[in-house]
Each structure stands twice: as structure tokens, then as C-alpha cells.
Amino acid sequence: MRGRLWGLALYLFVLGFILNLLGIVSHVMVSAFAKRWFGTPLPTAFTTEWFTYAWSNFDLGRILTVTLSVAGAVVVLALILGFPAAYILARRNFRGKPLLLLLYFLPLLIPQMTYGIPLATTLYRYAIGGTVAGVILANLVPMVPLAVFILMPFFEQISMNLEWGAAMMGANRFQVFRRILLPLTVPGLLTAGVLILVNTVSNFELTFLVSGAGSQTLVVALFYNVFAGGVRPVYSVDAMAVMYMTTVMLLLLLALRFVRPTQMVFRLDQPQR
């Protein structure tokens, strides 16, 4: 009996947390569609004009273009840099491998504010800071290791025999890569790509420290508008937040088609169910 009550309490907590979360998210959504909203459960009148207002006043067309091109470039570059390294780390043993893994793990472990300030300083010194290229380079710092760690277990699942067999049949290294490794790692590449995409779009600290006037991503622009609360109508900031949310949600829906949610935060070493 006590066990039952205990279990019920746990579920109630999760339910509470979820309700609270949905409340937070839908408060933003309702507010974005409100004409005016003061202390009533729901606004008295609804409108969609805040979206057009936000779109034209916050220069959202350009911000969205920057966001998606930064995210796209980060995904492609992180996969190109991470793919070969993940292959070698999954397949070979060599002296210094634990050290190398630790080095790759550090950018994921250390908070971005700690290494972001020296990184931004360095980028500004070489006049890359404040540009879109600078934002891409800075975001790649945690994303290359992330790509390596996501891809590694996928390589570990591919049997060596396949590669040996192909080599026996006379395939050269490029053919093994093109015909064996690449097709078999497509799920891994999709997982890594989608996670890097979502992470880059919602990454705040590094982009904030490195971006300038023309290289802000959606989340950084949103920060400045929330920070300057009162300068713009709160409904228009919420409209922008809704557009940001829609972008992330679309990417996330795409992600959940390929990835189990727990894989986002935990290592991939459990066997696939």
C-alpha cells in the first residue's frame, strides 16, 4: 500500500512538472496572439498582427537566414571533421587514446561561458569575431566532439568482417568507404546531424559572445528583445519566441523520427531495442 502511494506521488510530480512546462510554453503562445492581455485567464481579443510586426521590426527574415545557414554549415563541417576521427577512435587502439578522448570531451563538459570569453577574444583579435564565419567556427568547438561521440558507437556496430570481405574482393579504401561504411552509417549521420542542428539553433552562449550586429541568430536576437523588455510590446517579443519555437519544434519532430529521446543526453552504448 505504501509502495502504491509512493508511486502515485512520483507520477503526480512528473504530471506537475509537465503541466508547469506546458503552462510556460502555452503562456508564450497565447500572449503572441493576444491583442491586449491584463490579468485575465485569457486575452479578450486575439490578433495575428504581432507576427507581421515582429517579422518587419526585428528583421526576422535576415535573422532566420543567418540562423539556418549557420546551423547548416555547422552540421556539414562537424560531420566532415568528426566522421573520420570517430571511425579511427572506434576501430583502432593506440597510445594516448584515453587522453585524446578526454580532450574531445572537454568542450562538452566545460560550460561555454568559461571558454567562450577567451575564444571570443581570440576570434576578435583575428577579425573573425562578429562575422557569420566566426559564429560558425565558435559553434563547431563543441559540435565536432559531439559528432565524434555520437558516431563512434555506430561504427562499433559495423562488423569488421564486412570491411575485410570487401577488401578481399579487391575493393580499395575509397570503395570500402563509399560502398560499405557510408551506407551503413547513414542512421548515425542522421542522428548526429539532427542533434547538431537542434543544438546549434538553440545554442545561446557561444553565439552570443561571438556574434555581431549582422550575425545574430534567432535565439540571440530573442535574448536582446527579452532583455530590453518594455521597449517593444511584450506580445511582439512573444510572437518572435513562437517563431523560434516553431523552428526548433519542426527540427525536433524531424529528430524524433530518427532518435530515441534519451540518446540526446545519455551515451549511445545501450543496445538498440
Binding site: V198, S202, F204, V219, L222, V226, A241, M245, V248, L252
Partner: peptide
């Protein structure tokens, strides 16, 4: 996935 800023708002 929504990130800090949206949550804060």
C-alpha cells in the same frame, strides 16, 4: 531543445 531564452520568456 527549446533552450534557455524561450524558457526564460
Amino acid at each position: 531543445s527549446l533552450g534557455v531564452i524561450l524558457l526564460a520568456e
